[in-house]
Amino acid sequence: MTAETLIEVNDLNFSYDTRAILKGIQMSMPRGQVVAIMGGSGSGKTTLLKLIGGTIQPTSGYVKFAGEVVHELNRDALFKLRRKMGMLFQFGALFTDLSVFDNVAFQMREHTNLPESMIRDLVLMKLHAVGLRGAHHLMPNELSGGMARRVALARSIALDPMLIMYDEPFTGLDPISLSVIGNLIRRLSDALGMTSIVVTHDVQESLKIVDYVYFIADGVIAAEGTPKEVRESIAPFVHQFVHGEEDGPVPFHYPAQTYKKDLNLEDNFA
């Protein structure tokens, strides 16, 4: 880890009403790396992405992006900052009323005064990078799930951001599309020198492509390390998660009174 730090998360807390979602998160992500954030459903991974993107305010602590504290920025500065970020949503979130071409061109048209001919070249280049140059005239409802996500990926790299956040990029994909997306994430990060944050619970696929992994459970970082360290880890939680075991520190049963009591066995036969 020699590269300079792009994102610094320091003692980050976030509560929804009185329920604490994130408790004292501490992270540091260098430029150009692919970082995975893993954890069970509802462990606050997506909340963390929202905090980095500045769509919600932390209860305490801060996220620093390229030297600026995200939640202290006013609206204009935040919007300026977000131009340096890209985000890939779970199902792509393509604009359904725009064609593939217009989706990718969206940010260029909103934020730059480039001539239409140059936008056309740029869009085709971005689509080429995800292998969908030939699909530029299609509408989003004509795409498969994997293709939609690749278009969304092309859209999020439209303005060459410094950071791309992936929110569950592997959900609901067939194995081929899954590895296509996985490889694209790695390739694009290397080619464009971007930092990537991949929020996922797909352990096997993401361990293949990332440089560093954070495990989040119950709002705290349960474990962290390189993929190699994680695979060999003997920490019970990590072991359960990586190997997908049914029972362990994360119990199979939701907390309940004893089975006997629930079935009224004790009253009748006591």
Partner: peptide, 12 residues
Amino acid sequence: TEQLAAMGMMAV
């Protein structure tokens, strides 16, 4: 479908 959120993240 998170299109509005995506737009916000694109600084629009």
